[in-house]
Design a protein around this nucleic acid. Structure first.
Lengths: 184, 184
DNA sequence: TCAAGATATATCGCCCCCGAGGTAAAGAAC
DNA sequence: GTTCTTTACCTCGGGGGCGATATATCTTGA
C-alpha cells in the first residue's frame, strides 16, 4: 500500500521508495530489501506499476517506477476497505492515514470514526493484579510502568483530540458541499 | 520476554497470559494461540518455567505456569542486553519498559539513555518532495498527513519529556546511593 | 438431557518477512 | 590504476507468527 501510495505522488525508484517507507514509519527499522523488491515485482506482475530503466544520477542504473490506472484502483480499494488491522494497529493505521486523502469525504470520515471507536472500546488498562483487577498508575510500584501508562495515556489523548477535530472538520466540509449542491 | 516478565510477578496460566500480553501492547491485535502456546512450550523445554495442572476455576483444567531460577536469569539477560529492535521499535521498547525494574540502576539508566538517543539521531521527517527535500507540516496539502506529523511530533515530545525526567530521577537516586556508600 | 457458549490448551501448515549474500556501476581516495 | 564507498537492485533459505482446526471441561438454559 505504501509503495503505490508514494507512487501516486510521482514516479520513484526502489531505493528512494525504501527510504521514504522507512521515514514514514517513524523510527522503526526500515523495510528490508528482501521485502521491498519482491513486493515491487509482485505489483508489476499485477500491472499495478510499470518500470523503465534510467541511467543512475549518482551511481548504478535505476528502475523508475510509475503507477498505472490498475495500480491507482488497487490503492483506492485498499484504502476504502482496509483489512481490520489497518484500523486497530497503530503503525498500519498511520500508513493508511498518510494516503487517506485519495478517498472522497464520506469514506474518509467513516474510517476516521472507525479508528475513533477503537479508543472507546478498549480502555487503556495495561496492568492487572493476581485476580485480574486493573491496577491504576498510582498503585504501580515500578516507575517505568507508571511512565509507560503516562505515555500511553498522553499518546491516546493526543490522537483522540486530533480525530475529533478532524471529524468536525470533515463534517463541516461535507455540510458545506451539501449546502453548495442543494443551493446550486 | 513478556511471558517470563509477567510470571515474575506471580504464577499464571496461558489463557491469562494471553490477555495480559494483549493489554500490555495497547490496542494492538492480541498474541495468537499459535504463537503463545509453542512459546510457552519452548520456555518449558529450556527450563525457564514449570507447569502444574490445576482444575479450572471456571471451565477446562489450567496449566499454572511458574518461573524458575533459570527463567529469572534468562529474563534478566534479555533485559540487560536487549536486541537492538527493543530500543528502536516502539512496541518492543514499551514491552521492555514494562519489565525494566528487574534490572539494577546503572543498567536501567543506560537503556533509557539509549532510547533517548534514538530521538536525537532520527529527526521526525515523514514526507519528502520529488527531490528528496523534507516537506514541513505547513506545506503539506493533505490534512491527514498534517495530522500524522502533529501526532508523531506530540508523541515523541511526550516520551522525550518522560525519558529526560526519568534519567534525572535515576541519576538522583544513583547519586544518593553513592553518597550513602561513601558515607558509610 | 442436550445443545450452546465460554474457558482453556494444543498442533499444523502456510505465508510472509527478514537477513545474508551477491552483482553492478559510478565516483572518490590513494 | 586499483581499491573503497555509496548507490542500486536482486534472490534465496530459514524462521516465526498466524489462522484454522481440534479437543476437553464446565455452566447455563431450553
Amino acid at each position: 500500500m505504501a509503495i503505490l501510495g508514494f507512487l501516486r505522488d510521482f514516479p520513484l525508484h526502489g531505493y528512494d521508495l525504501k527510504n521514504r517507507v522507512a521515514s514514514l514509519a517513524g523510527h522503526v527499522r526500515p523495510v528490508a530489501d528482501g521485502t521491498l523488491y519482491p513486493t515491487i515485482r509482485k505489483l508489476e506482475d499485477a500491472q499495478c506499476l510499470t518500470r523503465r530503466t534510467a541511467p543512475g544520477s549518482v551511481a548504478a542504473p535505476r528502475h523508475m517506477l510509475e503507477i498505472t490506472q490498475t495500480g491507482t484502483d488497487q490503492l483506492r480499494r485498499w484504502l476504502r476497505d482496509p483489512e481490520p488491522g489497518f484500523i486497530t494497529d497503530d503503525n498500519k493505521w498511520y500508513v493508511l492515514l498518510a494516503f487517506l486523502h485519495h478517498l472522497e469525504n464520506p469514506r474518509e470520515q467513516a474510517l476516521v470514526l472507525a479508528r475513533r471507536r477503537e479508543f472507546l472500546d478498549k480502555p487503556a488498562q495495561l496492568f492487572f493484579d493476581e485476580h485480574g483487577a486493573p491496577i491504576p498508575p498510582e498503585r504501580l510500584e515500578s516507575p517505568f510502568r507508571k511512565g509507560l501508562m503516562q505515555i500511553h495515556r498522553s499518546t491516546n489523548l493526543t490522537e483522540i483530540d486530533w480525530l475529533d477535530r478532524e471529524t468536525a472538520e470533515l463534517n463541516r466540509r461535507a455540510g458545506f458541499t451539501v449546502q453548495q449542491r442543494s443551493g446550486g
